[in-house]
């Protein structure tokens, strides 16, 4: 009992000692620093933005800019609208200039192959033959499902639906899988930017729509940011065996889509037997 009373008295003494003016001044001095340190850590951990959602990147083709006027829809080559839309009609998109083709530069020893692939691009295009487009040709994801330890990219593309499961838990690239069309990806956060690094590609895909080939040494780094609720996608292709320098694609912006992605219709090539020459045009994607 005596011990207990003594103990309580000791605690009161300590408390009174802490509340002495000079002690309180010292505590007040370090209080803001303590609050900053303690509150800053959880804020930093929760900083990764949520990229989840369905994203519309304009079909991935810069010159496809659908416009609507009443029930009419125009994908390309749209004339100026004949009359001012009614007050309650959806606003038509303004016409956009057609950008120049975005292509990588190749090492000198590949110039003959560059010319050959550019000439034969219609016949050689893997996507016209319904093969997966590869990365970065596939562009920004059409849908993102984000979790703490992985992020999943889903695509609804011309040659089918595709997915990429991208671990975010710090693991290295796998060494137990075959080279593939979409490669082996890992991801991490750099501040608010999601960085996705992909390697282990096969050589059956192109970097662009118009014959930009690559080797199996290709590495693609994509960077995704949220800016004013728009998804900003940038990608750089590194392939020193073929490219004269790393190729940074033209950035793309995707907005939140109004509709969900769907199961892609079957891809059935039935045109090439009717193509009579190598006429083509450059695709600005």
């Amino acid at each position: 009992m005596v011990t207990s009373i003594n103990s309580r008295a000791r605690r009161v003494e300590i408390l009174l000692n802490m509340m002495r003016p000079e002690r309180m001044q010292r505590i007040l001095k370090i209080l803001p620093i303590a609050v900053f340190v303690c509150s800053g850590m959880p804020i930093e951990l929760a900083a990764a933005p949520d990229l989840s959602g369905t994203w519309d990147n304009g079909s991935g083709i810069d010159f496809i800019n659908p416009t609507r006027e009443g029930e009419s829809i125009c994908l390309m080559g749209c004339d100026p609208l004949p009359a001012a839309p009614a007050a309650n009609a959806p606003a038509a998109n303004p016409p956009r200039p057609i950008p120049k083709p975005d292509r990588p530069a190749y090492r000198p020893e590949f110039q003959d192959k560059v010319r050959d692939m550019e000439t034969r691009q219609v016949y050689a295009d893997p996507v016209i033959r319904c093969l997966p487009p590869g990365v970065p040709r596939i562009g920004p994801p059409d849908k993102i499902v984000q979790a703490a330890t992985e992020i999943i990219f889903l695509y609804d593309d011309v040659s089918g639906n595709f997915f990429r499961v991208i671990p975010l838990d710090g693991r290295p690239h796998r060494d137990d899988v075959e080279a593939s069309f979409l490669g082996d990806a890992i991801g991490w956060w750099e501040g608010n930017t999601l960085v996705v690094e992909t390697v282990n590609f096969n050589e059956d895909t192109w970097l662009t729509d118009d014959g930009a080939f690559h080797t199996a040494d290709l590495k693609v780094v994509e960077r995704l940011d949220l800016d004013d609720d728009k998804l900003q996608w940038r990608a750089t292709a590194y392939d020193p065996a073929a490219l004269a320098e790393p190729w940074e694609l033209r950035p793309r912006t995707a907005v939140r889509a109004e509709s969900e992605i769907l199961e892609a219709p079957l891809c059935l090539e039935r045109d090439l037997e009717h193509v009579i020459d190598e006429t083509h045009h450059d695709n600005p994607r």
Binding site: S59, I61, F63, I64, L75, M76, G77, I98, Q121, V122, D125, V127, I128, V158, D209, D210, D271, L272, H274, V275, I276, D277, E278, T279, H280, H281, D282, N283, R285
Partner: peptide
């Protein structure tokens, strides 16, 4: 520039 993405149209 008015052609769609699949550049086979002019050849076909």
């Amino acid at each position: 520039p008015g052609l769609p993405a699949h550049h086979s149209v002019a050849g076909m």
